[in-house]
Each structure stands twice: as structure tokens, then as C-alpha cells.
């Protein structure tokens, strides 16, 4: 049996090598992304020359139009474990996978252990979705019907000039419940690691609150879960199609200069229970 000190040394070695591996993976992904951008630019340039003009895509034109003021907020799908952030409000009506999955099964008469297997099935599907294990946030109910919802991603709202924020209002329908939190970087103290700020279907974050969060984590995090209404619906109809579950999150940002930005993020599930988000503004 190892001594405590020996175990600590082994753990630190493993942690360091995993961090190094993750850093290398990130660099590799960065290089791939950079190369992809270069190729995409070359392709656009060649294509434009080929059709004898510049790109005329309306969405692109309106997004870059001088008449349209640039958006001050970045709305992102983020993952704390992989430290990834994908901006979703650069184009309207873009659908992105959200790294969430829903499962509902009739588990009447099952033992606790068998119901746990249902949860493992959910994890297995999440692993398939990501291609590897990840940091999950699972919530579930184990009664006659077992309903689990697992997420790894969350929405993040980032406004780079926190002083410009008067308030942020976030709401969803009664299909869901949203939690607004900060997600400090590893290195903060444990009790400060994730600080749930507010929970409900209608939340307002004041400018002062946003500034405090921004200093720690550069944006607020919005996590979404199934409401009791939906879990109750599964309790009575375990076979309800997963694609019938949907929600709409409205994010309104009021700035101190009187301007405002509104975003709507529609959450929907496919028949397999995989969650995706579509942003419109």
C-alpha cells in the first residue's frame, strides 16, 4: 500500500501529464482551425473571382452593413471542461449542438441498480455525442418513469465593457428552468468555484452584478434544465416523443446609453434526445 505522500506524488504526475496532453490537443486544434480559416478564405476569394463579383449573401451583407450597429454582446455555447466557447450570435438562425441529452424510460418495477443502468445509458450516449468522456451535469428523477437530462455545455453571455450594462433579463417558458451562475477558472477557491446567482424562469442580472461576475469569469453562464412540468408529463406518458420538448430563452440586454439588444435562443431536441440551440436576433 502506497503512503499518502507517494500517492500524492503519483497523482500530481498524472495531473501534470494530463494537463500537458490537453494543452497539446488545444494547440493542435488551434492549428487545424487556423488552417481551415485560410483554406476557407482562399475558397471564397477564388469562388468570387469565378462568378465575376463579390459575395452577395444577404445575411453577410446585412451583418456587415454600416447601417447596422455591431452587436455589443457575445452569446456563446461554452464548455468549461474543454474551455471552448463558440459564438452563436454572429449569424442569425444558426443551429448549434448544445451538448445536452434527454432520456425518458418506463422503469416501473425496476430496482435502483437497474435504474442506475438507465443513467449509465445516458452517459454512454453523451460520450458518443462528444467522442470522449466529459464533465457532465446530470439531473434525473427515478420513479415509475426515469427521466434524465444531462448537459456538458451552457450558454454564456459576454459583454466586454461591463460598465456599459444596465441590466440583463433572461427568461424561458415553463418547459424549463434556468440557472444563472459564474464559472470561475480552476484556481479560485472551492466555495467560489461555481456560484449560483439566480434560478427561475425569469431572471434579471443588474449591471453591478454583471460587473462583479465579469471580473471573475468574463461573462454570465446560463444553464437550462427540464422543468417539473415536463418531467411530470414524462411520468404520465413515458413514450412522449423527445422532440416534443422545446423551450425558448429570451435574453434582453439593456445598456446604460439607452440602447438594447434582444436575442432568442430556441432549444429543441431531436428524436434521439440530443439538444441543439438556434439563435435569432
Amino acid at each position: 500500500m502506497k503512503t499518502d505522500r507517494e500517492m500524492a506524488n503519483d497523482i500530481l504526475c498524472k495531473v501534470n501529464s494530463m494537463k500537458e496532453e490537453r494543452r497539446m490537443m488545444k494547440n493542435r486544434m488551434g492549428r487545424v482551425a487556423a488552417l481551415s480559416c485560410v483554406f476557407a478564405l482562399i475558397f471564397v476569394a477564388v469562388f468570387s473571382l469565378f462568378i465575376g463579383g463579390t459575395t452577395t449573401d444577404e445575411k453577410f451583407a446585412s451583418a456587415t452593413s454600416e447601417n447596422t450597429p455591431p452587436k455589443k454582446a457575445f452569446l456563446m455555447v461554452a464548455n468549461a471542461a474543454y474551455e471552448t466557447e463558440t459564438v452563436i450570435n454572429k449569424d442569425a438562425d444558426v443551429t448549434l449542438p448544445m451538448g445536452g441529452i434527454l432520456i425518458a424510460k418506463d422503469t416501473k418495477g425496476m430496482t435502483f441498480s437497474e435504474k442506475d443502468t438507465v443513467m449509465l445509458e445516458l452517459k454512454e450516449r453523451l460520450i458518443q455525442l462528444y467522442g470522449k468522456d466529459c464533465d457532465w451535469h446530470l439531473r434525473g428523477i427515478q420513479e415509475d418513469t426515469t427521466v434524465y437530462f444531462g448537459t456538458a455545455d451552457y450558454l454564456k453571455v459576454k459583454i466586454e465593457n461591463p460598465d456599459s450594462v444596465d441590466k440583463i433579463s433572461i427568461s424561458c417558458t415553463d418547459s424549463g428552468i434556468i440557472t444563472v451562475s459564474d464559472k470561475s477558472k480552476l484556481g479560485g477557491s472551492l466555495s467560489e468555484y461555481i456560484k449560483t446567482i439566480k434560478q427561475g424562469t425569469s431572471i434579471t442580472v443588474t449591471g453591478k452584478e454583471y460587473t462583479e461576475i465579469y471580473e471573475k469569469t468574463d461573462g454570465i453562464c446560463i444553464e437550462w434544465f427540464l422543468s417539473e412540468i415536463i418531467t411530470d408529463a414524462f411520468m404520465t406518458s413515458p413514450d412522449m416523443p423527445l422532440s416534443e420538448v422545446e423551450d425558448e430563452i429570451t435574453i434582453s440586454i439593456n445598456y446604460t446609453d439607452g440602447s438594447a439588444e434582444d436575442y432568442t435562443v430556441s432549444f429543441s431536441f431531436n428524436d434521439e434526445g440530443m439538444l441543439s440551440a438556434k439563435c435569432s436576433f
Partner: peptide, 17 residues
């Protein structure tokens, strides 16, 4: 047990207050 301690340090754990 050792793996649990590794996860404690490497992951961004979701500790609830």
C-alpha cells in the same frame, strides 16, 4: 480512489455550495 483524486484536480468540478 487515486483516479478520483486525479479528477478532483484535473477537471473543472461542479461543486455545489
Amino acid at each position: 480512489t487515486e483516479e478520483t483524486f486525479v479528477k478532483l484536480l484535473i477537471k473543472k468540478p461542479k461543486h455545489k455550495n
